[in-house]
Design a binder for these strands. Structure first.
Length: 354
DNA sequence: TACACGTGGAT
DNA sequence: TATCCAAGTGT
């Protein structure tokens, strides 16, 4: 039997019943694909339900604000996905008369949609014969054909896309694409795949060569930068604080946070007090400065390890402007900030304001 | 083109 | 202060 037939037959028997598999509405498929980029099904599922409930149509999404979209996205990471999602929703409404583009070449024009996502939407919704190549597909093909070209090299990207396109069942593109991905996720999984029950085990080249464990090959690994962040959170007597929006490049773009002072290494109270912030912003006012966590909180991002200390400043007076501590939920914040807010609200520091 | 971009789970 | 990875994309 052909490669594609074996996969689709396996798929029909073993596929998970996932919510986005019961629709071909391109708006829903698009949402699910963006959410699932570099994200596990278990983690993305709740967000998918939130989004289709809050924004049932692309018009609803387009009519919302970026801040509202980021707020709903909070905790899922890679926030440019949310910004691009909102941008593209407006594009579809404004430039495409609200009609979702229905070919690969039109779909890939959407911000946040690359080769994989355009192929997925075009095939799943419109049965266009464009092969998806995601992490699962790289793994399945690299192992089955024992291909040692690094999957993240320019050569590898071209080679695997070409191979995937040759293998696709053009009359059955939607099912073929979903089958090979599901097969990679469940059968030909990264760690400890059970090749003894694999329907492709008689023809799998890397299994014959005992190289399953070595494939796929990925070129070099990234280096992790270390940073030390000191967040200074105010509490006024009327239980308000100040949030600042992160602008410019870098992590957490357009999300909110407290006053941030970055240092080369871990610093103590005296170092922090001597910082410009206190002469500049607080203008010599008497303040109480409390270190909230004694050990640095290690927050790990894909390219950085953040060593974080939170400081609390209890202000004597009230604050005319500022955000009430119970309204911080209205602002999109990094999960690091969210966790701190939740902990502080449960702490004794906070309770004296009640 | 190499690198930046989050978070959480598995090992 | 491990290490990898998970339905990738933008610059």
């Amino acid at each position: 039997m052909k490669f594609s037939n074996i996969l689709t037959q396996w798929y029909l028997l073993h596929k998970r019943d996932l919510p986005w598999r019961n629709t071909t509405n391109p708006y829903f498929i698009w949402l699910s694909e963006i959410i699932l980029q570099q994200t596990r099904v278990d983690q993305g599922m709740a967000y998918y339900f939130k989004f289709i409930e809050t924004f049932p149509t692309v018009q609803d999404l387009a009519n919302s604000s970026e801040e509202e979209v980021l707020n709903l996205w909070q905790g899922l990471g890679y926030y440019s996905r949310a910004r691009n999602l909102h941008f593209s929703a407006k594009y579809i409404v404004d430039e495409c008369k609200g009609e979702f583009p229905n070919t690969y070449s039109e779909i890939i024009k959407l911000k946040g949609v690359g080769d994989y996502t355009a192929s997925a939407i075009a095939s799943i919704c419109f049965n266009e014969s464009t092969a998806v190549v995601d992490g699962n597909v790289y793994r399945v093909l690299a192992r089955y054909f024992a291909i040692e070209t690094p999957i993240n090299s320019t050569k590898g990207i071209k080679e695997f896309k070409l191979l995937a396109q040759e293998l696709i069942d053009s009359k059955n593109a939607a099912m073929h694409n979903q089958a090979i991905m599901e097969f990679g996720a469940r059968m030909c999984k990264p760690q400890n795949p059970d090749c003894s029950i694999c329907p492709l085990n008689e023809s799998c080249v890397s299994l014959q060569k005992k190289k399953v464990k070595l494939l796929p090959i990925k070129e070099k690994k990234i280096k992790i930068k270390k940073r030390h962040l000191n967040y200074v959170a105010l509490i006024s007597s009327d239980k308000k604080t100040i949030l600042k929006k992160r602008v410019g490049k870098g992590i957490w773009q357009n999300l909110y946070e407290f006053k941030l002072i970055e240092s080369e290494s871990k610093i103590e109270k005296a170092d922090l007090l001597s910082d410009l912030f206190f002469t500049d912003v607080l203008n010599g006012k008497q303040i109480e400065l409390t270190k909230f966590n004694n050990d640095e909180i290690v927050h790990k991002l894909s390219h950085q390890h953040l060593f974080c200390t939170f400081w609390v400043v209890e202000l004597d007076g009230e604050m005319s402007n500022g955000v009430h501590w119970n309204s911080i939920d209205d602002y999109p914040v990094p999960i690091l900030i969210h966790n701190f807010v939740e902990e502080l609200k449960r702490s004794t520091i906070f309770s004296i304001f009640e």
